[in-house]
Each structure stands twice: as structure tokens, then as C-alpha cells.
Amino acid sequence: MSETKLTLTQAARHLGIGKNTLLARLRTAGWLHSTGAMRNAPTKAATEQGLLHPKLTAYHRGPVCIQHPTSLVTAKGLVWMQDLLDREAAGTASAS
């Protein structure tokens, strides 16, 4: 049985925020790598907890095939992200 996985763009739409905002929050939370060739790839912790799933994709730049990791969001990860956004909103609301 295969679990449905969403792209980060699809997850952002489902959560009602922009993709870049979601990426920034996940990098800040430590679930995505923030620099280098692994930028926006899931960290080992996120993968082991089942929040994100790495997928190796490739594209061609002239005769060269370039592979890079992308992140897919699991159902468990989507619930976790919604909880993260709710906690941030509650923290912002109580600070105001």
C-alpha cells in the first residue's frame, strides 16, 4: 500500500500559505537543509520521523544530466505542518 505524498507546492496550497513561506518556515524549524546543493532537501530527522520523503529528480542542462533531491510531504508531515502554523499563530496572537 502506497501512502499519498504531496509536493511542497501542493502542501502550501492545502495549508493556505505560499510555497516560499512554507520553505522558509521548514528551514527555520530544521526540517529542510538551508544551504548548498542539498538546499530544501529533507533532513535526516524529518525523514526518520516520516514527515518528509526525499525524491531524487533529474533535469538536463545541455548534454549534462543534473540530479538533485526534492522533498515530498507525507500525511503525517502535513498534520505536523498545520500544527506548527497553528502554534506560530497562537504565539503571535498572544504576543500582540
Rank of each mutant, 00 (worst) to 15 (best):
T70F: 02
A89V: 08
L84H: 03
T70Q: 10
R87N: 13
A90S: 10
D83A: 08
Q67F: 13
G77W: 00
W80Y: 09
L78K: 04
T70Y: 01
L85H: 05
L72S: 01
M81K: 04
T92M: 09
I66C: 14
G91D: 15
V79L: 12
P69G: 04
H68W: 05
I66G: 03
C65E: 15
H68K: 13
A89T: 10
L72F: 02
T92A: 15
Q82H: 07
V73I: 10
A75Y: 08
I66T: 15
D86K: 11
M81D: 01
S94M: 07
L78G: 09
P69N: 04
L85A: 07
G77H: 03
S71C: 05
M81R: 02
L84C: 06
A93H: 15
R87F: 13
V73W: 00
A90E: 05
S94N: 14
A90K: 11
A93P: 10
H68F: 07
W80G: 00
S94K: 14
G91W: 06
T70S: 06
G77Y: 00
A93C: 11
A90P: 00
W80L: 00
A95T: 11
C65T: 13
Q82L: 09
H68Q: 13
V79I: 11
Q82G: 11
S94P: 03
T74C: 04
T70K: 05
A95N: 12
L85F: 10
L85N: 05
G91S: 08
G77E: 01
